[in-house]
Amino acid sequence: MENLAAKYTHIPGWGIDADPKNDPTYPLKHHTDSEHDGYNWERPAQQSQDVEVLQSIERPSLPAVFGTTVAPQGLSGQLRRFAFKYSESHYGHWLPLLLADRVNMVEGLVDDLKQGHIPNIFAEKGWKAEWKHNPLGLVQKVATTALVTWAVVAFFSRKKDKA
């Protein structure tokens, strides 16, 4: 071990933590275990579960309190159920959740149209504020969206003409 220490003494800062008195956490290393006193608390009463609550596979039980705005439903709900079969450290958890959010937005638009409500996309997307504070960015977004939409429509209509 001493050979190793001598081998690297030319590196500035090498072995700086070898002396415990020079370690910035030195006083904390001598615990009295009094910090564990705060861990003894009574668990709050369990919130009743009236709707389906998706739960991470890393948790053995539901937390005492959780959000229950809307139960998972439709295609987005199926995607969310699929995502919660995977660990939170896995892409199979997060990517389907991202997709489910986008699908849920489309499902909401379809639901609005079914109920006879035409959504005000301009207001809901915050374009008024963006026009005020970032007009060039808004014009770029709209132009890019229009260009991509035109390209997709042109691509698919061209294939129909050849057939």
Rank of each mutant, 00 (worst) to 15 (best):
Q49N: 10
H30V: 00
Q55D: 06
L28N: 13
P20D: 03
H30E: 13
K29D: 07
E52T: 10
I121C: 01
D19W: 05
S56D: 07
Q140K: 08
L98D: 00
W14R: 05
A83S: 13
K85G: 11
A123L: 10
S48Y: 04
S87K: 06
E58P: 00
Y8G: 05
H30W: 11
Q49C: 15
L54V: 11
P119S: 04
H10D: 12
Q49W: 00
A100C: 05
A83W: 09
P27E: 10
E107T: 05
T145Q: 05
L138S: 09
T25R: 14
V106A: 14
P96K: 05
L4H: 02
I118P: 01
T149M: 02
S87P: 00
I16R: 05
P12W: 01
N120W: 04
G13Q: 03
K160V: 03
G137M: 01
G108L: 03
R43F: 02
E42G: 13
F84N: 08
F84Q: 03
A45N: 01
T144A: 08
G108F: 00
V103D: 06
G77E: 04
G15K: 11
V106T: 15
F82N: 09
I11R: 07
Y86T: 04
D50L: 11
H31S: 13
D101Y: 07
Y86G: 02
D111M: 13
D23V: 07
L109N: 06
A18M: 08
L136V: 12
W14L: 01
G116H: 04
A71T: 09
Y91F: 11
L97I: 07
H90M: 10
A123R: 14
T25L: 12
G77S: 06
W94Y: 15
I11V: 14
V70R: 14
E58V: 02
S157G: 00
G108R: 02
Y26P: 05
S76A: 15
D17K: 12
L98H: 11
A6I: 05
P24Q: 06
P44Q: 01
N104Q: 13
N134T: 07
P63G: 03
P60N: 09
L79V: 10
K141Y: 03
R80N: 09
H93W: 10
R43T: 14
V103Q: 08
A64N: 02
A18N: 15
L98V: 11
Q78N: 12
M105Q: 15
H93P: 06
A100S: 12
V65N: 00
S157W: 02
E124A: 13
S48L: 05
P60A: 13
Y8H: 10
D37P: 01
A163P: 07
G77T: 06
Q55I: 15
D112G: 14
V139D: 01
W127K: 07
Q55F: 08
F155P: 04
L4S: 02
S34C: 00
N22P: 01
